[in-house]
């Protein structure tokens, strides 16, 4: 809502920004509007040279606003376009590791004991993340062992000759 007229309304503020607010006049000054006579003060004629610095002030204020907006805005599209190349990764990795070593050296951090159980494996995460035993292998060993157990259960002595032999003792 705007006020119809207020003594405290300052035309300068609202007109400079060009935005209507609660203090903006709904009705412009009837006297000046109908008469369409520009109001000049005697000071205006005297201080005519002051209009130029005012303009530059406005310009600088505008520039300042633009600059602030630009710093506050994060341009996501522009960020995406900048992809890190492989060598940049490597460079950064070297940089960070050297910094880390320096920091460790200066702070004299205690040397970590080797707690890794798989220290003889160069890349344990590769092996641990690999696929476990395949279904085929599981089936193979389980069927083989089951069959072998059954086969061994069937082992029995096949006698081809009589177990008891009568010795013919000559009379």
């Amino acid at each position: 809502m705007g006020c119809c007229y207020s003594f405290f309304c300052k035309d300068g503020d609202s007109q400079q920004r060009g935005e209507p607010n609660e203090r903006t006049h709904l009705l412009v000054d009837p006297v000046s509007n109908s008469a369409n006579i520009p109001q000049y003060n005697s000071e205006d004629f005297l201080n005519n040279s002051n209009t130029l610095p005012k303009k530059t002030d406005e310009q600088s204020a505008l520039n300042r606003i633009l600059q602030e907006t630009a710093t506050n805005v994060i341009d996501v599209a522009a960020l995406d376009s900048h992809n890190l190349q492989q060598h940049e990764y490597v460079e950064r990795m070297r940089q960070y590791s050297s910094k880390l070593q320096q920091a460790c050296a200066t702070n004299k951090l205690p040397v970590r004991h080797k707690l890794c159980v798989l220290q003889d494996i160069p890349a344990p995460e590769k092996i641990l993340s690999s696929e476990s035993v395949s279904e085929d292998d599981l089936n193979l060993i389980s069927t083989a062992v089951t069959k072998a157990a059954a086969a061994i259960g069937e082992i029995k002595v096949e006698h081809k000759e009589d177990m008891v032999v009568l010795f013919r003792v000559p009379d």
């Binding site: 035993v133 599981l138 193979l140 060993i141 389980s142 062992v145 072998a148 157990a149």
Partner: peptide, 22 residues
């Protein structure tokens, strides 16, 4: 259990069933 030892090229799979181990 089924035990599997493996390196880059070969694997050894072991399992017991009853009294027999394969």
């Amino acid at each position: 259990p089924i035990i599997v030892f493996e390196n880059d090229t070969r694997a050894c799979i072991i399992q017991r069933n009853g009294t027999i181990t394969g």
